[in-house]
């Protein structure tokens, strides 16, 4: 049974690698027409100097909206899985159940590195978010850098001021504030478009 499965896996691997290899290694000249269109028209049509940001948030904004919905659904599913993990049907007996002691697995190396590195990562993420509109890739990766900084800070409990970034209540307050800022800026933009 195992040998049959191994043979099936080998055949699958060979066929897939052949197919993908033909797809990847054939050289067709890359078309330049669309690049020229974007290069000449982006500034007049969107006003954004970064063409990738213009495509991502202007020309194909509905793609981005759908992608955000996909990300939201994946985050919901992951949170559901992690939260109901303990309540899921537990087949293994108590003898095989290991005791996961979190305190013994945390050394002070993580604590020292995180307390020094976490604030720097958060500041770097804010820098990318603020100035990323004229760097390759846009400001999107700033958000992920910021989120990774918060995740790193939430690994351990630190005594300095950066511990506030790992408290759930504080993060909720920041979320609400950012959302209110977003709404206010949206309304201000609407007012500016209407009256000025």
């Amino acid at each position: 049974m195992r040998i049959i499965k191994k043979i099936i896996g080998f055949i699958t691997f060979t066929l897939a690698s052949l197919f993908i290899g033909i797809l990847m290694l054939t050289r067709i000249p890359w078309p330049t027409e669309l690049r020229d269109i974007y290069e000449t028209n982006t500034i007049q049509e969107t006003g954004a100097p970064n063409i990738v940001s213009a495509i991502y948030l202007g020309y194909r904004a509905y793609d981005t909206l759908g992608e955000t919905i996909v990300l939201f659904i994946a985050a919901m599913g992951t949170l559901y899985l992690l939260r109901h993990a303990q309540k899921s049907l537990f087949i293994a007996t108590d003898s095989t159940k290991e005791t996961l002691t979190y305190k013994t697995r945390r050394t002070s190396i993580i604590k020292v590195i995180v307390s020094k590195l976490g604030p720097a990562i958060i500041i770097f993420g804010m820098y990318i978010m603020a100035f990323g509109y004229r760097s390759p890739g846009g400001g999107f990766q700033g958000g992920s850098v910021l989120a990774s900084g918060i995740v790193i800070l939430s690994f351990v409990f630190i005594e300095n001021k950066s511990k506030y970034m790992a408290i759930t209540q504080m993060l909720k307050k920041i979320e609400v504030m950012v959302f209110i800022l977003l709404l206010v800026s949206f309304f201000l933009a609407c007012l500016q478009a209407l009256f000025f």
Binding site: Y38, P49, N50, T64, E67, P136, G137
Partner: peptide, 23 residues
């Protein structure tokens, strides 16, 4: 050059694959 149109940049790379790869 990177697809950022400032200071009269010309001969930029194709921005479409970069935008799609973000997705």
């Amino acid at each position: 050059s990177a697809p950022i149109l400032e200071n009269t940049v010309y001969n930029v790379v194709d921005p479409i694959p970069q935008a799609l790869m973000l997705t």
